[in-house]
Simulated assay, not measured.
Amino acid sequence: MSDLVNHFAHRGDLAHLALFLWASWSTALLIFSLRELTGAMRRFDDFVRELARFNERFGNSRFGNSDGKTEQRPARHSRAVRAEDGPGEDLPRVRRSSRAH
């Protein structure tokens, strides 16, 4: 390794050596990060699969029956938006004052 550094130092190519080392470490870090990311995605996929299996076995009987039919879940909000409502119908009305300020 020192022979390689001496060769680059003798020719005055230390900037090229630094650039090569930086690129090598950057590539190694990228490969390591991608490997860790794929491992995390695999573990998350396993978790979701196990969660789906759990829900199949011990699903909430209030919303799902053993025959696979599901009941209608209650709305999350206090007022469910109807299909015939136009955009913004569920928003409160703002009164405009007739007087100019």
Rank of each mutant, 00 (worst) to 15 (best):
D3V: 07
N6K: 05
H7T: 10
F8Y: 03
A9Q: 06
H10Q: 14
G12V: 01
G12K: 02
D13C: 04
A15Q: 08
H16T: 07
H16C: 03
L17I: 01
L17V: 01
L17T: 02
L17D: 00
A18G: 01
F20S: 01
W22H: 14
W22R: 15
A23P: 00
W25V: 08
S26N: 15
S26A: 13
S26E: 11
T27Y: 08
A28Y: 06
A28L: 08
A28V: 04
A28R: 11
I31G: 04
I31R: 09
F32Q: 10
F32R: 10
F32M: 14
S33E: 03
L37V: 07
L37C: 09
G39W: 02
G39Q: 08
A40D: 11
R42L: 06
F44L: 15
D45M: 08
D46P: 00
V48T: 12
R49N: 05
R49W: 05
L51W: 12
A52D: 10
A52L: 08
F54G: 03
N55F: 07
N55T: 06
R57G: 00
F58L: 12
F58Q: 11
G59T: 01
G59E: 02
N60L: 01
R62T: 14
F63K: 01
F63P: 00
S66I: 13
S66V: 14
T70L: 04
E71G: 09
E71S: 15
Q72A: 09
Q72T: 11
Q72F: 04
A75I: 02
A75F: 07
R76G: 15
R76E: 13
R76L: 14
H77A: 12
S78P: 06
A83E: 12
A83S: 12
E84V: 06
E84S: 09
E84K: 09
D85W: 15
D85N: 07
D85I: 00
G86A: 10
P87H: 14
P87N: 13
G88V: 01
G88L: 02
G88D: 06
E89K: 09
D90F: 10
L91F: 09
P92M: 02
P92G: 03
R93V: 14
V94S: 02
R95E: 14
R96Q: 13
S97K: 11
S97D: 14
S97P: 04
S97R: 15
S98E: 15
S98A: 15
A100W: 14
H101T: 13
H101R: 15
H101Q: 15
